[in-house]
């Protein structure tokens, strides 16, 4: 299952392509090829686990605990 924030589009405010490319609606940016593997849950990746953008948008990316002395 692909990420719910993933879309394929050919343009945004700063780009105009002759083909559709992966776009992250959570970050408002086109997605790099390596991140697109995660968006599409390829190669044993799972966006719910492996994508910090999804996890932040979904509220599941708890910050690392502050070190304590």
């Amino acid at each position: 299952m692909s990420c719910p924030y993933l879309e394929y589009k050919a343009s945004d405010d700063g780009h105009d392509f002759d083909h559709e490319r992966p776009y992250c609606t959570a970050s408002g940016q086109f997605v790099s090829p390596m991140r697109a593997d995660i968006c599409n849950d390829r190669h044993d990746f799972h966006h719910e686990v492996d994508c910090e953008i999804y996890r932040e948008a979904a509220g599941t990316d708890a910050p690392a605990p502050e070190p304590t002395d």
């Binding site: 780009h15 392509f17 790099s32």
Partner: peptide, 10 residues
């Protein structure tokens, strides 16, 4: 490569 796309440099 496998890192960048045309959005980074057309």
């Amino acid at each position: 490569g496998g890192v960048h796309g045309k959005d980074a440099n057309p």
